[in-house]
């Protein structure tokens, strides 16, 4: 018995294995090409001064990517599993305040306060995930609530102003973590950047080579299928939001260091939108099931290059926003066109 008669017409000719391999390559290659084009564009705009392609500029750009990048790695996990987290910016602000107060008022050593800050981020994520699964309310709404609550909490704790770690309590290494010119110099880039790279590699590995990672894609792609295959979807979501929260906590710690060891309840306002933009530019999808760590990091770098390039080229702040907005639309549109061509 044969099925030679079957499937000759409609179905199976689309999307050969080669196409599919290309599609996967393209998901990282696309953002990379975008990054190259934008870099070239700013190098051209600033060709008279020639400063844009200097090592010093890039050391700064990568340092400016650290907070965004670490938070975006967490968001990548959340979005792959079909969720979203709008509370990222508020969580970062809350963490800067709590770390500072832990040192100032509770006399924690800085290192311990940092651990507490990361744990606080994890707790915020755990709360988000638990509410989403227990109340069965859309992640958009729950984390929108979180956005206001965590921000409000930060303002309340800090009494509406910035708070500072006393000079005496500061550790000498605090200023090195995000220093564009690192010590020792063989590090080439700041330790904070290396932290980002290491976590990027961990997330990439998790997504590709762990059961948990494959399950995140499955839940984001089709929850019902995941359930059918024995995955405890609620548990997995809580876990994903918690891991993402830990990463957001780490991003908050980096922001605390970037602020020179202080907490600011108004900092990182709107960070979540930049984070979501990075994930989307990097091939993630708001409907879940897609995204990679590498793509996200390229997306983050692209946004940093834009921010920095605009400063170099003397483009005003307002235009920067317009350009970033346009790039998000172009990136996602190109992605959709590619999919339509593949018949996905």
């Amino acid at each position: 018995m044969s099925t030679d008669q079957v499937d000759r017409g409609g179905g199976s000719s689309r999307g050969s294995a080669a196409d599919f391999a290309f599609a996967r390559l393209w998901s990282v290659l696309g953002p990379l090409i975008g990054l190259g084009l934008i870099t070239g564009f700013f190098a051209f705009l600033t060709r008279d001064s020639g400063t844009f392609l200097q090592l010093a500029t890039w050391r700064l750009i990568v340092v400016q990517t650290v907070v965004l990048g670490i938070a975006a790695l967490g968001m990548t996990l959340v979005m792959i599993s079909g969720g979203i987290d709008l509370a990222v910016g508020s969580t970062v602000a809350l963490v800067t305040v709590v770390v500072t107060l832990a040192v100032r008022d509770l006399h924690f050593p800085v290192a311990l306060a940092i651990v507490a800050g990361i744990a606080l981020g994890g707790l915020c994520g755990f709360i988000n995930g638990s509410l989403i699964t227990l109340l069965r309310v859309m992640p958009f709404i729950i984390t929108l609530g979180g956005l206001k609550i965590y921000r409000g909490g930060a303002k309340w704790l800090a009494d509406n102003g910035s708070v500072y770690v006393p000079a005496a309590a500061k550790a000498p290494w605090m200023s090195h973590v995000l220093a564009p010119d690192p010590e020792p110099s063989w590090l080439v880039v700041a330790p904070g950047v290396w932290t980002l790279v290491v976590f990027g590699a961990i997330v990439a590995f998790l997504l590709r080579y762990s059961i948990l990672g494959r399950r995140m894609y499955a839940v984001g792609s089709n929850e019902a299928t995941a359930r059918l295959c024995g995955i405890n979807v609620s548990k997995l979501k809580v876990l994903v939001y918690t891991i993402a929260g830990l990463l957001t906590g780490l991003a908050g710690v980096m922001q605390f260091l970037d602020l020179g060891g202080s907490g600011d309840p108004t900092t990182a306002d709107g960070l979540e939108l930049q984070v979501i933009a990075s994930v989307v530019i990097g091939g993630g999808s708001l409907s879940g099931g897609e995204g990679t760590a590498a793509g996200t990091l390229i997306g983050c770098l692209l946004i940093s290059v834009l921010n920095n390039g605009c400063v170099h080229a003397g483009i005003p702040n307002a235009s920067q926003d317009v350009i970033i907005g346009a790039i998000i639309i172009v990136a996602v549109t190109l992605d959709r066109l590619r999919r339509a061509r593949e018949g996905v």
């Binding site: 599919f20 059961i211 990672g213 494959r214 399950r215 499955a218 792609s221 299928t225 099931g289 897609e290």
Partner: peptide, 29 residues
């Protein structure tokens, strides 16, 4: 379409989702 398969994942992802652990060596897929 709505439950049996995750349509935008690959064949291998769909085929092995229930028993991924069978391909794990020392915690690595």
């Amino acid at each position: 379409k709505n439950e049996g398969l995750a349509l935008n994942l690959s064949i291998e992802d769909n085929l092995t989702l229930t028993a991924l652990h069978r391909h794990v060596r020392r915690g690595i897929l």
